[in-house]
């Protein structure tokens, strides 16, 4: 028990505020989502409107409709809102000069984080859902961004062609299928609609080995979304035994700084029960341990 006495006390009372002709008109307009300013004697515009300007002159009573958009003249970030603040999440108090006016309005800006606040930034009013003729009819201001979200969502089907299908069906069985046009004699993996040298389809399917030569490669060191391996890792061109051009795949099972051009590699397959119609049935290629292929033997594939 404390030596000092203390008891809670609430001072609470709802006053009745006479609004007068100028402020009353302004607040009434807010109910309808309309923002207005008042003309001063010397031709300026004030929003919120005042009955008397800073020189003590009565304003004219002429109202001007304004766009609910303005510029932040000064601001402060409130990381922990207090009771009575208009927002229950971090926000900014700001002095906002509504376009076409000569004064500034105190209000709040819902900006998520202080980084998005800047003196001179453009803000627009967000109207409260229920309005009752108070300044809180403007729920808050929010940043005006010079861009719009442009969502696109389209649903497509993907249907591989007959040659690529043959390749995918092979993968499902753990085989690498290539195609050959007898006129050219070159084996392409996957098979192609047209041999580049003859223009004929590579319709004679042949199975090629899952071993080959790593011709060239890169070590990927940047992280990016959807990555399967943790950088650094290797991505390279492999000329499979029995094929006449490289396929591209991941190289692993060896420290990346020991990867060499000419290295003999073999596919590391996923467990058979996980095989699908996908080249990803092969997790990566790994060294076979055989001696490297001489440079001249794969130079034509670079």
């Amino acid at each position: 028990m404390s030596d000092f006495l203390s008891a809670p006390y609430v001072l609470q009372y709802t006053y009745t505020r006479s609004t007068g002709p100028v402020i009353g008109r302004f607040l009434e307009s807010l109910r309808y989502g309309v923002l207005e300013g008042v003309r001063t004697a010397d031709g300026g515009v004030l929003c919120p409107p005042l009955e008397y300007d800073e020189k003590g002159e009565a304003t004219t009573g002429e109202f001007i409709q304004l766009r609910p958009v303005g510029t932040v003249k000064s601001w402060t970030w409130v990381p922990e809102p207090r009771k009575g603040h208009p927002l229950d999440r971090p926000f900014a108090f700001a002095l906002i000069q509504i376009d076409g006016t000569d004064n500034a309005m105190v209000h709040v800006v819902d900006a998520e984080k202080p980084k998005r606040m800047k003196t001179g930034m453009r803000v627009r009013a967000r109207w409260a859902e229920e309005r009752n003729g108070t300044i809180r009819d403007i729920a808050c201001f929010e940043p005006v961004l010079p861009y719009l979200p442009g969502p696109v969502h389209l649903d497509y089907d993907v249907r591989p062609g007959q040659h690529y299908t043959a390749f995918l069906r092979g993968l499902q069985e753990g085989k690498l299928i290539g195609g050959c046009d007898s006129q050219s004699g070159k084996v392409y993996v996957p098979p192609r609609a047209a041999d580049p040298f003859t223009g004929n389809p590579t319709s004679e399917y042949v199975e090629v080995a899952d071993t080959g030569v790593l011709t060239t490669f890169t070590i990927i060191r940047i992280p990016f979304e959807g990555q399967k391996l943790k950088p650094p890792y290797c991505f390279g061109a492999i000329v499979l035994d029995g094929a006449d051009m490289p396929i591209y795949h991941l190289i692993s099972g060896v420290p990346y700084d020991q990867i060499r051009m000419g290295m003999r590699v073999k596919a590391k397959w996923k467990p058979r029960e996980e095989w699908e119609t996908s080249l990803e049935n092969i997790l990566y290629f790994e060294p076979t341990g055989e001696p490297d292929a001489p440079f001249e033997s794969y130079e034509e594939h670079l």
């Binding site: 062609g161 690529y164 299908t165 609609a193 047209a194």
Partner: peptide, 10 residues
């Protein structure tokens, strides 16, 4: 069904 772009073009 079983034609990709290249298989239409060829």
């Amino acid at each position: 069904h079983a034609t990709d772009e290249a298989e239409l073009v060829q």
